[in-house]
Structure formats: C-alpha cells, structure tokens
C-alpha cells in the first residue's frame, strides 16, 4: 500500500471515528426529546418540555465546546431525564383528565339513576294512592251492597224461612204460596216473593252458587211427586234467572217426598213438607253472612206459621 492510499484510509477512519464519537447519552437525549416533543407533552406540559429543550441545548453546546467530555455526557444525561420527565408528566395530566371525565360521567349516571329511582318511587306512590282510593271505594261499595243485602234479607225473612245450615243458607218457601195444588206454574203472589229472593241472590257474593230444591209430601205416587217437585224447582229457577240471577250459578232438582221437615201424617206437617228450598252455597256469600246475623225463624214449621199471612201452608193435599 502506498503512502498516499494509507493517508486516505486513515482520513476516512478518522472521519468515521469523529462522526461516531457523539456520546450515546447525547444521542439518547435527542431521541428522548424528539419523542416527548412529538407526544402529548407538547400540548399538555409545554413548560416541562421547554425545560427539556433548554437542557438539551446546553448539552449540545457543551458537546460542541468541549467534545465528548464527562461534563457533556452528564448534561446529556440530565437532558434525557428532563425529556422523559416531560413525557411522564404529560401522561399524569392525561390520566387525571380521564379520571375526572369518568367521575363526571359517573356522577351523571348516578344523577340519572337517582332521578329514575325517584320517578319510579313517585309512580309507585301514585299507584299506591290510587289503589288505596280504589280499595276504599270498593270497601264502600261492598258495605253498601252488604247493607242492601241485609235489608233485602230482612225483608225476605218476612215471607220465608231463612236458616243457616252446613249445606249453606237455606231459604224455604212454602209450596202452598208459590204453586197451585198439583201444578208447577207460579202463582202471581209467588212472583213478588221470588222477586225479593232474586234481589237477595243477586247481591250475594260472586263466588256463591244456588240450588233450588223442590219437595212434596209423601201422599200420592212417588213418580208423580218426583216429577212435580222437579218441575216446580225448575220453574222457580227459571223465574229467578229471568229476574237477573246468573243462570250458570243456579241449578234445580226435584227430590219428591225426601227429607221431610214435618210429619206427613198430619195436614200441617204435609203442608210444611210441600216446599221449595233455595240453598245459597259458599262461605263467602254475603247473603249467608247476613243470614247468620239476621233473626231467622227457628224452623220450617215456625216459618210457615210466621209466613202464613203471606201464604202459609194450607192443610190440603197436592
């Protein structure tokens, strides 16, 4: 290798060594500052970024003046830390802003939730007040209905026997009053009485059901008595339905001479046995409850006796 070539190579190596002699701390400081300047620090913490910039300028100047000295490296080190600090402080500000925004959003959510709860509570209060008013009105209607039922039943006791039995409230009407002898057609007088009965039945509890049972005395053929009692019970049922008693709640049956309530050997007894019973079934029946409170007749005989003025049983055979 000639001396000239060696000189050129040495020059290149020297230049290369010059360019690579920039201390890594200064390179790192520049990079850190660039990163910080391009990040949110420029917007969020400009003052701290300015401090980093100044610090980097001092480091650069020191390097220019003194070269790669310990002093220059120290200043570059400090400049890098200043730039990193600017970045971190920007991150802190950003995080605090996010926290504040989230807290505000949470407060709004809470406020909305509270408002919704209050609204719901208010609606519930209103609903409750409405229900109370409705309940009071219902109670009033019920009391009124009970009063009417009691009054109707009270009237009814004047024309019929009303008894409370395990099978229900039993309203007993004398067959003599309702039907002509041997017939199943209602007498005109019977219609007025059955109107009163129908009023009582209509005012009874909605859960009540009614059973009309027709009875005869024991004289005469059984089949005839059976048929007659069935037709009479059906006639009473039809009339009651025509007066507004729900048809699906009332049924009828004829029992002939069964279940006598008096001695069939006497005319008075037979008269008492010829009867129609209307049984109000169901414990919740207003009529039943009121019937318990009403002074009822002690028995069919007595009832027939008491109602004899309004058509008591006559001692005659059907």
């Amino acid at each position: 290798m000639s001396l000239k070539k060696l000189t050129v190579v040495c020059s290149i190596l020297t230049c290369a060594s010059c360019s690579s002699s920039t201390p890594s701390s200064l390179v790192d400081a520049r990079a850190a500052y660039q990163r910080a300047a391009q990040g949110p620090a420029a917007r969020v913490t400009p003052a701290q970024l300015h401090v980093a910039q100044t610090s980097l300028a001092v480091a650069e100047q020191t390097y220019d003046d003194e070269g790669d000295t310990q002093n220059a490296r120290d200043r570059a080190y400090v400049a890098q830390r200043k730039a990193e600090l600017a970045e971190v402080q920007a991150s802190i500000v950003d995080a605090e802003a996010r926290e504040t925004a989230a807290q505000q959003q949470l407060q709004q959510q809470n406020a909305q939730h509270q408002q919704a709860t209050e609204q719901s509570l208010s609606q519930a209060h209103q609903q409750l007040a409405g229900q109370k008013a409705e309940l009071a009105a219902e109670r009033q209607r019920r009391e009124e209905a009970e009063r009417r039922a009691a009054a109707a039943l009270s009237e009814l006791t004047k024309i019929a026997s009303v008894k409370e039995e395990p099978r229900g409230t039993v309203i007993t009407l004398s067959g003599e009053v309702i039907f002509a002898s041997g017939k199943s057609d209602l007498l005109p007088a019977a219609r007025r009485k059955l109107d009163q009965v129908a009023e009582v039945l209509k005012q009874s509890d909605s859960s009540s059901s009614f059973l009309v049972q027709g009875y005869t005395d024991s004289r005469g053929p059984l089949s005839l008595n059976q048929d007659l009692s069935t037709r009479r019970a059906a006639a009473v049922r039809e009339y009651l339905v025509s007066r507004g008693v729900p048809g699906d709640k009332i049924r009828s049956e004829g029992l002939g001479p069964d279940n006598p309530v008096a001695d069939n050997n006497t005319a008075e007894g037979r008269a008492n046995n010829r009867r129609v019973e209307i049984i109000v079934q169901g414990d919740k029946s207003n009529a039943a409850r009121n019937g318990q409170n009403q002074p009822s007749n002690s028995g069919p005989q007595k009832s027939e006796a008491s109602t004899s003025g309004a058509g008591g049983p006559a001692p005659k055979q059907q």
Partner: peptide
C-alpha cells in the same frame, strides 16, 4: 403516573359497570 393511571382505570371501570359511588 402509575397511581394516576390506576385511578383513571378504576373510575372508567366504575363507569362501565355503572356502579354508584365516587372512586
């Protein structure tokens, strides 16, 4: 910064879950 990031994450989690009460 670590503390601030944790607080922000907690607050945002509360918003997401809709839990009441300030973090």
């Amino acid at each position: 910064e670590n503390d601030a990031l944790a607080r922000a994450a907690r607050a945002q989690a509360l918003v997401t879950t809709g839990t009441s009460g300030a973090p």
